[in-house]
Structure formats: structure tokens, C-alpha cells
Design a protein around this nucleic acid. Structure first.
Length: 136
DNA sequence: GCCAACGTTGGC
DNA sequence: GCCAACGTTGGC
């Protein structure tokens, strides 16, 4: 079982959109590193759902429903998509400021490589964030 | 609004 | 293969 962090600009696709849809196609990734992470995802893996932009916080947890398959929206190139579903929300979003302030979290990829839209997280990081936010 | 970080493109 | 120029993302 692996853990991830997936990022989205809320105006593009937000956590509340996912809660409404229950499940969505995670496509549109056009970065090799991010794509390779998508391809490493296994069904049942959990991903922290992070809002970039104004919020800058982990707001929920998604679950990988379907492993990587060709991104139907890609007009050219070798790109992948996965399906993700709602796992559970967080009672309080865990902000980037909190992450940076937490000794156990300050080395997360999101702090160092803020632009990478799909990134791995460790079990310890994942558990810590869920604990800080409070599972709903 | 600015800037840092990073990726891509194209000239050499 | 290198590097300058440029575009995009995202934090501040």
C-alpha cells in the first residue's frame, strides 16, 4: 500500500467537486515525473487531496479506484490517467503553513517541489496529516 | 503583482 | 550537448 499527494487548483477541480461526483478521472497530467507517479499507483492506495492557490491545504483523502490507463484527453504523447474516489474528508484542512511548521512533515515533497502535481508521501506523513486534520 | 522554481523549446 | 529565452505554476 502506497501513499500519495495529488494537487488541484480548486477552481479547476475541488474536493467538493469530488464529493459531489464520488469518483472522477484524474487526467490532464502533463509532466513526466507526475505521470510516472500516476503509473505507480495501485488500486486501494490513498492520496492526500491538496488545494493549491488561495487555500494551500490538504482537505481530504482520495482512494485509487482504477490504475493507470491512457489519458483519453491527450491529443499527443504518452500520458496516463487514473480514477480516484472519495475516501474521507478532514474535519479541519491541514495547511501548508502547518506542514512547514511540523518537524515530521517539513520534508514532504510538497514543501520542496511545490509544482509537482502528483507526488509520493510516506505512511508516517500520511498518518500525521490525517491525525492533524481529523478523519471525518 | 512579483518572483522563484521548474519545464520546454530552439539556436548554436 | 549546452544554454538562453520563454512559459507556467504556485507561494508570498
Amino acid at each position: 500500500m502506497n501513499y500519495w499527494l495529488i494537487k488541484s487548483e480548486p477552481s479547476t477541480y475541488s474536493w467538493s467537486d469530488l464529493c459531489r461526483d464520488k469518483k472522477t478521472v484524474w487526467d490532464g497530467v502533463r509532466n513526466f515525473q507526475a505521470r510516472n507517479h500516476l503509473r505507480a499507483m495501485k488500486r486501494g492506495d490513498l492520496a492526500l487531496f491538496y488545494h493549491s492557490g488561495d487555500e494551500k491545504a490538504v482537505i481530504g483523502v482520495a482512494r485509487v479506484e482504477k490504475e493507470a490507463y491512457p489519458d483519453q484527453k491527450a491529443r499527443e504523447g504518452d500520458w496516463s490517467a487514473v480514477d480516484v474516489a472519495v475516501e474521507h474528508g478532514l474535519a479541519t484542512p491541514v495547511t501548508l503553513a502547518q506542514i512547514k511548521a511540523e518537524p515530521t512533515l517539513k520534508d514532504m515533497v510538497v514543501v520542496k517541489q511545490s509544482r509537482l502535481s502528483v507526488q509520493p508521501a510516506t505512511k508516517a506523513e500520511f498518518d500525521r496529516i490525517v491525525k492533524l486534520g481529523g478523519r471525518v
